[in-house]
Amino acid sequence: MCFLRGLPAALAAIFVAGAVAADQIGDRDAGEKVFSKCKGCHEVGQGARDRIGPHLNGIFGRAAAAHADYAYSKSMTRAGQDGLVWTIETLDAYIENPRALVSKTRMSFRGVKDPKDRADVLAYLRGFSDNPSDVPEAEPTARATDHDLDPAILALKGDAEYGEYLSSECLTCHQSDGSADGIPSITRWPTDDFVVAMHAYKRKLRPHPVMQMMAERLSDEEIAALAAYFKDLE
């Protein structure tokens, strides 16, 4: 039985040839555009850092949950212990449907169904795995300030215990385990990202009316407390 059966043709070709060059997976330039769907949680390229999800430099050939200093879900950690390694085949399956490969992953993403889009984004990511010590620059790692929030608000140190007390209203919609059922996960967010988002709702820059109402009722200290609590919530 051929183990390549069922793989997209662009992906099967790389196994037949035994090659790993990015341009033999898909179109890297097209893949950069597809990666825009991932930028809310992941960075790649020089200066990439962990955000809601780990950065993706050097992802190819790495065991699942093996990136140091990132707090993975128990399910992802277990998958790595069971031998899951990120290859063309496993990454393709994960990007198509994250929960098909890791059932309780915190990755709140419905997946990329188009085989060509998956092949293209894998070609793009492959370019940041060949030489992790000399990773090329990438637009997704740019961190230009996208808000004019007072730095003093971002500098507030939130009380996580107080945040837990305040969190019950948030958890009527959002899941504490980070899963998503049509409602985005808010666990493991960097505190700055959480605070900026909440103040954007407060200022009605983000359009969700319920979130606008919720944010408007919160003080700066309460938003900081919620950010501190959800940052480390397992």
Rank of each mutant, 00 (worst) to 15 (best):
F3G: 09
A9P: 00
A10D: 10
A10Q: 14
A12D: 04
A12Y: 04
F15R: 13
V16S: 10
A17K: 12
A21F: 01
D23F: 05
I25S: 08
R28A: 13
A30S: 14
E32F: 07
K33G: 05
H42R: 09
G45W: 01
R51W: 02
G53F: 09
N57G: 12
R62E: 11
R62S: 14
A65K: 11
A65Q: 13
A68N: 10
Y70M: 05
Y72W: 14
A79N: 14
L84D: 10
L91N: 04
Y94I: 04
E96G: 02
R99G: 09
A100E: 14
V102I: 15
S103Q: 15
T105V: 12
S108Y: 07
S108I: 05
G111I: 02
S129A: 09
N131T: 15
D134G: 03
A138D: 12
R143K: 12
D148L: 01
L149R: 07
P151I: 12
K157N: 08
L166P: 01
L171R: 10
H174N: 05
D181N: 15
I183Y: 06
R188T: 10
H199N: 12
H199T: 09
A200S: 14
K202T: 01
R206M: 08
H208V: 12
P209K: 13
M211L: 13
M214R: 11
R217P: 01
D220S: 01
E221G: 04
L226M: 03
A227M: 07
F230K: 06
E234D: 12
